[in-house]
Computed example of a mutant assay.
Amino acid sequence: MNRITFLLIWIAIAAAIFTFMAIAWRARKRRDASLSPASIGLADQPIATFAHVSYVSTTPVGEPFVRVAVPGLSYKGWADVAVHREGVAIQVTGEPRIEISADRVRGTDTARGRIGKVVERDGISLLQWEALQAGSDTRALESGFRFDTPAEQRRFAAAISEMNPIHHTDLPTSTSITQEDDA
């Protein structure tokens, strides 16, 4: 086999891989297109704001390796997060702003990893919430954020608790990505 044939085979393999990736992403976006946080038009002053936070991903609760393509939270990037008494506003760079009402927020947690990122133990803050699905169904989700310091991470958790102190989470928590992390 000469070099040109070898090169053409590898180009065909790479093209096939990228094609399958594009098809899979399009299917995921179609599957999750009906998910949405209820837009509420946050008008009150924020309890806390967090600028230039690393947004990691949104996953179903308890499934850290399954990405959910919620409109507004589809892609990893920098985000501005504002916690209000009425809810949470998230603006990921290049995505439309989303607002999650306080009655949909279920609490916070921490994790070592999510799809797309693995860090030190409890290095990712999780916002646990419910998205509305087609009809009257809801889906329990976790959106992961990587803050610059542990103090910012604690301030985020405190702001979420202050926003909705009555509502306690009834969702299962997942603070690690593997059993080996507990050792």
Rank of each mutant, 00 (worst) to 15 (best):
A43G: 11
A51E: 15
V68L: 04
E63T: 04
G62D: 02
R28G: 08
P60W: 02
K117G: 00
K76F: 14
P71W: 13
G77Q: 13
A27K: 13
Q179I: 13
T19G: 11
G62F: 02
E180A: 15
A15Y: 02
V70P: 05
T49V: 13
H167K: 11
A134Q: 11
V118A: 03
T5R: 01
F147M: 13
P64H: 03
W78N: 15
A16K: 01
D103P: 10
A15G: 04
P46D: 05
L171G: 01
R28H: 11
G144V: 09
L126T: 06
V53G: 09
S161Y: 06
I177C: 00
F50H: 07
S101D: 14
G72E: 10
A102L: 10
R154D: 11
A102R: 15
S136V: 10
A15D: 02
G123H: 06
M21D: 11
V68P: 02
G116V: 05
R97L: 15
A14H: 02
L126Y: 07
D182E: 12
H168F: 04
A158E: 06
S34V: 12
H52Y: 09
E130D: 12
N2D: 07
R31Y: 08
P37C: 13
Y75L: 15
I13Q: 00
P37Y: 12
M21P: 01
M1S: 03
A69P: 10
T149P: 06
I11S: 02
F147K: 12
G41E: 13
P71F: 12
S54P: 01
I98S: 08
D181P: 01
R121S: 09
P172R: 07
R26G: 05
A157D: 05
F156W: 04
A131E: 09
A43F: 07
S101G: 12
K117F: 02
Q133S: 12
E152N: 10
P172C: 03
D182A: 10
V53N: 10
Q179N: 12
R67M: 10
S57H: 02
I13D: 00
T93S: 14
P37A: 15
D44Y: 04
S34L: 12
A69L: 14
A38P: 11
Q128D: 06
A159H: 01
R112C: 08
A79P: 15
T59A: 01
S161M: 06
T138Q: 12
R3G: 04
I98F: 05
L7N: 00
E152P: 09
G77H: 13
F6C: 00
A158T: 06
L171N: 01
T59P: 00
A183K: 14
T19P: 03
V118L: 04
M1K: 02
W10F: 01
E142C: 10
I47V: 07
F50C: 06
R85H: 15
R139W: 09
M1E: 01
V88T: 05
R97S: 12
